[in-house]
Each structure stands twice: as structure tokens, then as C-alpha cells.
């Protein structure tokens, strides 16, 4: 039943074995969402118990990589939450750039679908900022990066992406940014030509330094309070003197004691600024 039939002992056993088998620590993941995506992965691979799953993962490292990908699954859209994209376009990029001669360093630490990366690249390109930034992206799974590089996305998304872009009031004809063939759509991959992809799980291993803008929307949701707090401190260390942090609309710093570290720029859109 959506993974809620799995016991806590099942999950603990799996988490313990996964640390040894696949280089990912799930012990601080939000439990309900972990159950749901784990259950969906097991169903799609016709695996009916945790013991069977552990047995198959131990035999097949490729299966483990697919599991890591599916546990992080999300459903996003290009230009989701229009207002936040307007804030980036009209406030953040300009404020950051006015004070700076060297390139702005931007990091998207949790790419999955590519919707946000392509949206950001469109925004930067339309506002002539592309050659003024160094844009870095990383993911929990190399599988997502491979997918993003192909530019492929579900044709069902194009209508909603288009509607979001119109609300955002972009400068171009959105249809120029992708092509359609059959039931697949492909982003124009030249949009991400300048993106530097960092190794998988960089976030937990060796996060980049001297960053001015971190874009991490709806990814904190996957973690428990303890790991969220740890990441907020990690980001604080990654920033140079000043820097903007954007979280998802329902991810708020108000549950954390962060007043000395981050000031609120926009509460509804979870836009924060490092206090230096």
C-alpha cells in the first residue's frame, strides 16, 4: 500500500545495506516519501520484499544506480511558480552582477528533470547574462545528468511549460526552445552548452566554493529535519560574502534557527540572502 506496509525494521535494514552497497546514505531521508518512491521502484522491477531487493542490489550495481535515481524522482515543470523566476530576472541577477567584475558563480545542486536548469538558462540567455555567469549543476544520480544532456522531456509537459512561460512574460517564442517528434519533446541542448556538470552527489561530498547563487527548490523535501539543517549550513559555507539561496515555495527557513545566517528576501517564494 504505497510502501506503508513496509516496517521500520525493513527500512533500517535496507538503509544499512545501501550505505555499503551504493555510496548513498538514506538514513536521514523523510520517511513517508522514501517509502512511496521505494515501493514504486520495487513494483516496477517486480521485487516483492526488502530481502529480495537487497539480494538483487548486491548482485547488480546497475540496478542500484536506477534505484538511486527513482528514489529522487519528482515531477516538475519549466518556470514552475512564475513569481520566483521574475524575482531572479528583475532583482537577483542584476543586484549580484552590479557589484561584480568577475563571473557570477551559480549552482543548482539537485537536478532531476532538467526543467529548472533549462528554465534558468533561458532566463540568462534572454537577459544577456549567459556569458557573465559560471553555471554549475549536479545531481544525486548520473542518470539524471545523462537525461538532461539529451534534452528529452515528456510531450505532455510542453503545454504546461508554455503556459508558465507566458505567465512569466518571457521575451521570445517559447516554441523556439524545443522540438517535438512523435510523443517526445527535446529541449534545444545548445541552451545548456556552458553548464558545467559536477560529479554525482557533489552536494554531500565536495560542494563548490565561492558561490553567489544557489538554486535548490523542492529538494529539501526529501530529507528529514536533521539533514535539512546540515545542508543549510553547507550552503552557508559555499557562499562567498553575499549570496542568494532559493528553496521551494513550501520549504521555509522559519522552522530553523537561521536568523543570524540568512535574511528573508521573499517569504512566499522562499528567497533568502546570506548575511555576511
Amino acid at each position: 500500500m504505497y510502501g506503508f506496509n513496509l516496517t521500520d525494521q525493513d527500512l533500517n535494514k535496507l538503509t544499512f545495506r545501501l550505505k555499503e552497497l551504493c555510496d548513498v546514505d538514506y538514513s536521514n531521508y523523510a520517511k513517508s516519501a522514501f517509502r512511496i518512491s521505494l515501493n514504486s521502484f520495487m513494483q516496477s522491477h517486480a521485487i516483492y520484499s526488502i530481502d529480495e531487493l537487497i539480494f538483487r542490489l548486491a548482485k547488480d550495481p546497475l540496478l542500484a544506480e536506477f534505484m538511486i535515481k527513482d528514489i529522487a524522482i519528482e515531477d516538475s515543470e519549466a518556470f514552475r511558480d512564475t513569481l520566483v523566476w521574475k524575482i531572479i530576472r528583475f532583482d537577483i541577477i542584476k543586484e549580484l552582477y552590479e557589484k561584480r567584475e568577475e563571473k557570477l558563480r551559480i549552482w543548482i545542486p539537485g537536478c532531476t528533470t532538467g526543467d529548472e536548469l533549462y528554465s534558468l538558462c533561458i532566463l540568462l540567455k534572454e537577459n544577456f547574462f549567459m556569458d557573465k555567469v559560471e553555471l554549475m549543476a549536479s545531481s544525486i544520480s548520473e542518470k539524471y545528468i545523462e537525461l538532461i544532456k539529451t534534452g528529452m522531456f515528456s510531450i505532455k509537459k510542453s503545454e504546461i511549460n508554455q503556459a508558465n512561460y507566458l505567465r512569466y512574460k518571457g521575451k521570445a517564442d517559447f516554441k523556439n526552445y524545443y522540438t517535438v517528434s512523435g510523443n517526445k519533446a527535446h529541449w534545444d541542448t545548445s541552451l545548456i552548452e556552458q553548464v558545467r556538470f559536477l560529479p554525482a552527489r557533489t552536494l554531500f561530498k565536495s560542494p563548490p566554493e565561492n558561490i553567489q547563487f544557489i538554486f535548490f527548490r523542492n529538494r529539501m523535501l526529501y530529507y528529514n529535519y536533521h539533514l535539512q539543517l546540515q545542508l543549510l549550513n553547507t550552503f552557508y559555507q559555499c557562499f562567498s560574502n553575499d549570496g542568494f539561496l532559493i528553496l521551494g515555495a513550501k520549504e521555509t527557513l522559519s522552522n530553523f534557527n537561521m536568523k543570524a545566517k540568512y535574511a528573508t528576501v521573499n517569504e512566499n517564494e522562499s528567497v533568502y540572502k546570506k548575511i555576511s
Partner: peptide
């Protein structure tokens, strides 16, 4: 989502 520790968890799944 409702977590057993008396708090909410949202998901973008």
C-alpha cells in the same frame, strides 16, 4: 504527507 513524529512532509513526487 503526515509523518509519525507529529509533523508534515510535503513531496514534489
Amino acid at each position: 504527507l503526515i509523518e509519525p513524529e507529529f509533523h508534515f512532509a510535503l513531496s514534489s513526487g
